[in-house]
């Protein structure tokens, strides 16, 4: 346990120092957040106050939908980047020779990636509320539960993308396909009920749909954990199935890469 905490500290320190030493990138990300929010704000104004999906104003609807969507995609991107960078710089093979199990390394690295993306999500939501006056009605406990369950699913998604990178060396293409599909189906920009019936049914098979829906209930409507139990149960079920499958897939792909000698191929 002590060594796990020590490894986590080392990984967090590495990522923090790298981020701090990329100050210009950090500043540009902040500017990008405000530009994106401004675009959504004026889009909702152009559409007008009559459009209230799910009974909430359109700007807060967009704020939560795009915020959670971005959290998912950026988390998966963080996994992909860390694998690609490790392959390109040659650290991949060296990391695989340390005393730390690959699965442990992935999970610990993900904590660091999620910490960074959680901060970004917090800044995004706070800026939406403070600068663009999005109206919210928060249930903190529900928010916390949705967030934890969402992280489990995002972890699984990130591992799948990392696995694709190790197996096919095509993680970017898979992430692009996943992110555009999720953007379209998950209800981030518009309610999934607006889709044609077959696509709406497909949207119900996408875990991000429930993560966004749950976060809207918790952040915008102040629903309690009990009131949103069905959504939470679905999120938990997705996490319980997807995470072990993703970990198993990663383990198999690493073994296959070791067998074929393709660990550092990209």
């Amino acid at each position: 346990m002590r060594s796990t905490v020590d490894k986590l500290r080392a990984i967090l320190r590495r990522d923090l120092l790298t981020a701090i030493r990329h100050r210009s990138g950090f500043a540009m990300t902040l500017i990008g957040v405000f530009m994106e929010l401004a675009a959504f704000y004026f889009l909702s104004r152009a559409i007008g106050p009559g459009f209230r999906p799910g009974g909430v104003e359109y700007f807060p609807f967009l704020l939560v939908g795009t915020g959670v969507y971005t959290f998912f995609v950026m988390s998966a991107q963080a996994f992909l980047s860390s694998v690609q960078e490790a392959q390109q710089t040659g650290t991949m093979e060296v990391l695989m020779t340390t005393s730390t199990e690959p699965a442990e390394l992935v999970v610990l690295s993900s904590i660091s990636a999620f910490a960074g993306n959680l901060v970004s999500l917090g800044v995004y939501l706070l800026a939406g509320v403070a600068v663009f006056r999005a109206s919210i009605h928060v249930d903190v406990l529900s928010c916390f539960v949705v967030l934890i369950l969402s992280i489990v699913i995002a972890l699984a998604l990130g591992i799948v993308v990392a696995t694709m990178q190790i197996t096919l060396q095509k993680g970017s293409a898979v992430l692009w396909l996943l992110s555009s599909g999720l953007w379209f189906l998950s209800g981030a920009m518009f309610p999934s009920e607006s889709l044609p019936r077959p696509l709406e049914l497909l949207a119900h098979l996408v875990p991000l749909t429930y993560a966004i829906e749950g976060m809207r209930m918790a952040l915008l409507q102040g629903r309690s954990v009990v009131a949103m139990a069905p959504t939470l149960a679905i999120l938990a079920a997705f996490g319980a199935v997807l995470l072990p499958l993703a970990m198993g897939g990663l383990s198999l792909s690493l073994r296959r890469a070791r067998r074929r000698g393709t660990l550092s191929f990209y």
Partner: peptide, 18 residues
């Protein structure tokens, strides 16, 4: 890791090597 110093790199790998 290019944006870490030599000592920071060694500290990182030493932690993973327990």
């Amino acid at each position: 890791f290019p944006r870490l110093s030599a000592r920071e790199n060694l500290d990182f790998f030493a932690a993973l090597d327990e």
